[in-house]
Each structure stands twice: as structure tokens, then as C-alpha cells.
Amino acid sequence: MSGVSTQYQVGNVSAGERSLAVLPRNWKANGSKMGVLYCHGYGGTAMECRNSASQNMWTLVEAIARAGFPVLSCDLGGDIWGNPTAVARVTTARAYLQGTLGAKAGKIALLGQSMGHLTAMNWAAANLASTACVVSSMGVCDLAGIQQDPLFQASINAAYGGTYSNATHGPASNPAVNTAAKYAGLKWLSYRGASDTIAPQPTAVALAAAIGATATANTVPGYHDWATVGNYPVQAIVDFIAENS
């Protein structure tokens, strides 16, 4: 872990929930550098970016911290698909990142993995002036679309009170709905596997087109798995965060 230090805690950000802070070595907590919040994927936790299965994501998160940016990963309510509770957890996490951990006041960057992209984007939609940029890793862009997948349908329905309705929940919780009004000017960078069938590239291309010139949707070789993250251009992502800090 050359160049970074980690802090794992329970209950320090939200009651009963885990958090992992990945900090630049000799971090001074003096408000000098923008914070980055990692939003985990389905079935993940705050430790998702640090476990052995997701070593490639750890490589990316470590590189971000080595570049001087404090990174915080939290449980964010669990598998709740960007619902209002998840969005509220991000607000709490931002306060901890900028308060206790000493990140720069004001805007934060968000790194959303798969399901966690919904949390990142829904928070950004509600807090656009406080969002520096969003990095999407295999990000779910259309909640209504993935809700049709039997693998995730029960979990999504439970997160939205029993049944997800795009008409009812979409305007606040589905990035694919009312996109231009939500995300005008948002700096958004997306990477996913070219063969991803869970969060397919056409949904990212549509979202990028709706956001406008500040959004870019890229593919790399791979599927919807951790191996694909190893194909991301790490330095380009770090540079994108730095340019928008």
C-alpha cells in the first residue's frame, strides 16, 4: 500500500454501517484536496474496493489516493439501488469526508460501481452544484431496464417499497429520466466492458448524449466483472478527477 493509508471503521459515518477511508500517505486533513466518494455495486459493501476479488478496483482507488485525493467508501444503505435513503447516506458521507477526514469544502467527485452509479447520479441530480464530476464503472444508467432482469428485480422492488414504478420513482431515481434537466453541465466519464449485458453500452451512450458535451461513454474489452476494471486507463481517470477538482 505504498503511498496511501487506510482506515476501516463501523458506525463512524452512519450508524451500524461500515466505512473505509483510503488516504494519501501523510494526509494532513487540512482541506487542501477534493474528496472522492466510492459508491459500491450490488452485493458489495464499503470494503468492496479493497477485497481480493476486486483487486483491479483497489488499483484504481489507490491511484486516486496516491494522486492526493482522499477517498471514502461507505455501505450507503446496502443494496437499495439509488433510492432516497442511499442519496441521504451520500450527504452524510460527504459531511464526514469534508469534516472528520479533512477533504476540501465544496464539491466532491463520485465513483459509482454498477448499482452504485445510480446512487452517485441521483445524488448529483439533487446536488449538482456540489458535484465536481462522476466516474461510472460499469454503471447502471437505466433503472427501469435493469428492473426487468430476474436477477435484480426483487431487490429493486424491495428498495422502492415493494414495486418499482418508473412513472412514480423514475424522475428522482432513474438517471435515464428527465436527463437533460438533471445533469446540465455535469462532467461524466464512463467505462464498461464492450460485452457487458447487465449494464450495456447503449444505455451509457444514451445517457451521455442526454447530458451533452461534458459526458463521455467509453468501452474496454470485457464483461460486467472485476477483470474488466483491469482494462480501464487508470491515469486517464485520475487525470479526469484532477482536472475537475
Rank of each mutant, 00 (worst) to 15 (best):
I237Y: 14
I211G: 03
E17P: 08
A95G: 13
T85E: 11
D75I: 14
L118P: 07
E17A: 04
T163I: 11
A184G: 15
D142P: 13
A199E: 00
D142I: 00
A95V: 09
E62D: 08
V238A: 07
P200C: 02
T219R: 08
P171I: 09
F152P: 01
L97Y: 07
G193M: 03
A194P: 02
S165P: 01
T92R: 10
T197Y: 14
M138G: 13
M121Q: 08
A21T: 02
T6C: 12
F69L: 06
A129V: 13
P84G: 10
S130Q: 15
V135C: 01
C141L: 06
A132M: 05
Q55K: 13
S14C: 04
N56E: 10
N174Q: 03
V140Y: 00
A204H: 09
L186C: 10
V36F: 07
G230V: 08
L128K: 02
S190W: 08
V90F: 05
L207T: 02
A105E: 10
C49S: 10
A154T: 12
W123R: 00
N122Y: 00
A65T: 09
A242P: 01
S136P: 05
A181L: 08
H40N: 02
A120D: 00
S137M: 15
P233E: 06
P200Q: 06
A159V: 04
V4N: 02
V71D: 11
G145D: 15
L151D: 00
S137A: 13
G44Y: 09
T119E: 08
G41N: 05
H40V: 00
W81G: 02
V13S: 06
T168Q: 14
Q98P: 06
S14T: 13
W58R: 12
P175R: 07
S73C: 15
V36A: 09
C133M: 04
P70R: 09
L186A: 08
